[in-house]
């Protein structure tokens, strides 16, 4: 079975690269990156502002990758899987929560922060936005692991239950985002004949080093 990466987005050093095109370059402070990218994308999704940076990065990358990928909407969303991984888990938000409970005389933990103290919430936010109800998994790894992402997506696509896998890496630490999101589908005559990329360790590593 041949499989193809039909669209991808890379967010690194506060710039967004999508399908070999520079989509957005951020020259301001790291703290304003997500909000400014949201405006650049002309998104209208008020819930975005309530999310932590990990979810914002995952959503921005997914939105950029899928916005011009017309065939995505024709997929059965119950047969689309999401497989993501990162290194820092939800550490950025964990720290924010920890700060809110460290002073017993000023003890006001925020429920809206606390709900993001799990890394797989980013999968939930993407699933809600795109109504994806297929399989999902989130892995916390010491470093970017193309083999893990590749093999897990391949296993899902070999099953009878999955037609496409939204996969990748989304890591946030010290306010900086390191995100790669891509869509893997079975190869067809139409997607083989364009500039789509073969789904392999090498391709995934190449996209990650962009």
């Amino acid at each position: 079975m041949d499989t193809t990466i039909t669209t991808y987005t890379r967010i690194r050093r506060q710039g967004i690269l999508s399908n070999d095109q520079l989509f957005y370059e951020h020259n301001g402070e790291a703290a304003t990156f997500a909000g400014d990218a949201y405006k650049h994308l002309q998104l209208s999704y008020p819930k975005f502002h309530k999310m932590d940076l990990l979810c914002k990065a995952g959503l921005l990358a997914t939105e950029t990758a899928l916005k011009d990928h017309a065939s995505f909407q024709s997929l059965d969303m119950s047969r689309v899987a999401i497989v993501l991984a990162n290194r820092a888990s939800s550490l950025e938000t964990d720290r924010q929560h920890q700060r809110s409970i460290s002073d017993k005389s000023n003890y006001f933990p925020s429920p809206a922060v606390f709900v993001y103290t799990l890394p797989n919430i980013v999968i939930g936010e993407i699933a809600i936005k795109y109504k994806i109800t297929g399989e999902n998994a989130f892995f916390v790894c010491e470093h970017f692991d193309a083999a893990l992402l590749h093999d897990y997506a391949e296993t899902l696509l070999k099953s009878e239950h999955t037609d496409a896998v939204l996969a990748g890496w989304t890591d946030v630490d010290q306010g900086l985002t390191d995100t790669l999101i891509y869509l893997v589908e079975r190869s067809t005559d139409s997607n083989k004949n364009t500039n789509f990329k073969p789904h392999s360790f090498e391709t995934i590593n190449q996209l990650y080093t962009l």
Binding site: K50, S110, P111
Partner: peptide
């Protein structure tokens, strides 16, 4: 529902 919890925190804070 999370906003509801935040409003409770707002009143207390």
């Amino acid at each position: 529902s999370i906003d509801a919890l935040e409003l409770i925190v707002l009143l207390e804070k």
